[in-house]
């Protein structure tokens, strides 16, 4: 098992300074990840994205990350300097961001952007690179990749943009993929396609996946295990298939707030947050 363990996180804390005090946004969470699909769900502000970013050490000062242990395949991530992190980002751990519109470079062709991540880490001949780019685009189910590599990001749709992002992140063949709300800017029908593409590639290549999302139902459909976060803490951990039997009142509240396809309730239960300002 320990050989299979990709990521170990123990007592991870992330804090930011305010005018008065440092405020802790992630309050000592611990989890392990094998070659499996882990979902982290929670509302905005629960610290789920920061957790994802801290694994890649993308949190800049004045933000502060501390942990008893943050290791990836027995590499202590906290001890790595910027230069060493560069070798890890992309090749070993990569991350898909939320919105393809803001994460793709508007003045570079798609082919150039995908091959950039390959060229940064490997020395391959030009024709090999081109071949790998086209294979990768085929893998993410883009029709006519020879044409698409010459296009610019504004010439493709949102769903295609997101698949291109996935291609870009997976082409250096990382061991761990962190997907931060990979589908929340997409339509339901495209969402399913994009997640199926991720799912296929993950299973085929035996990678680990952390799927960060606010969508409980979607996450439970695609992941093996789920962590529910609330204001910087993990409040519940369960198997995705057993989400419906979740025990924590917060998880139950979230589940109840989601309307179903066969919705006959007159009013949806909410988490009783007061619309008043905190004192």
């Amino acid at each position: 098992m320990s050989e299979d363990k990709l990521l170990e996180v123990k007592n991870l804390r992330i804090s930011f300074p305010t005018t008065r005090d440092r405020i802790e946004v992630v309050k000592g969470i611990s989890f392990d990840l094998g070659r499996e699909k882990l979902g982290i769900v929670g509302e905005s502000g629960s610290g789920k994205s920061l957790t994802g970013r801290s694994i890649l050490k993308l949190i800049r000062a004045p933000g502060q990350v501390t942990a008893d242990k943050l290791s990836f395949k027995n590499i202590d991530l906290l001890a790595q300097n910027e230069k060493q992190m560069r070798n890890i980002r992309g090749t070993k751990i990569s991350m898909i961001m939320q919105d393809p519109k803001f994460s793709l470079n508007p003045v570079m062709t798609i082919g150039a952007q995908i091959s950039e991540s390959l060229n940064a880490h490997n020395k391959l001949s030009k024709s090999e690179v081109n071949q790998r780019v086209i294979d990768m685009l085929n893998d993410v189910k883009i029709n006519d990749p020879e044409r698409v590599v010459k296009l610019y990001p504004h010439e493709v749709s949102g769903g295609m943009g997101q698949r291109i992002m996935i291609a870009m992140m997976l082409i250096p063949q990382p061991d761990l993929l962190i997907a931060d709300e990979p589908t929340s800017s997409l339509d339901v029908s495209v969402q399913a396609q994009v997640l199926n593409v991720i799912d296929d590639l993950i299973s085929k290549k035996g990678m680990g996946l952390i799927l960060i999302s606010h969508d409980l139902v979607l996450t439970s459909r695609y992941c093996d295990r789920i962590l529910v976060m609330k204001s910087g803490e993990i409040v519940e951990e369960c198997k995705a298939s057993e989400l419906a039997n979740a025990k924590h009142p917060y998880t139950r509240g979230l589940l109840a707030a989601i309307p179903s396809l066969n919705e006959t309730r007159d009013e949806l239960p909410t988490l009783n947050r007061l619309q008043k300002e905190p004192i």
Binding site: E43, A257, P259, L268, P269, T270
Partner: peptide, 11 residues
């Protein structure tokens, strides 16, 4: 919006 906030707005 988040699901819980969505529920508030839908109500």
């Amino acid at each position: 919006l988040d699901v819980s906030v969505q529920a508030e707005i839908l109500n």
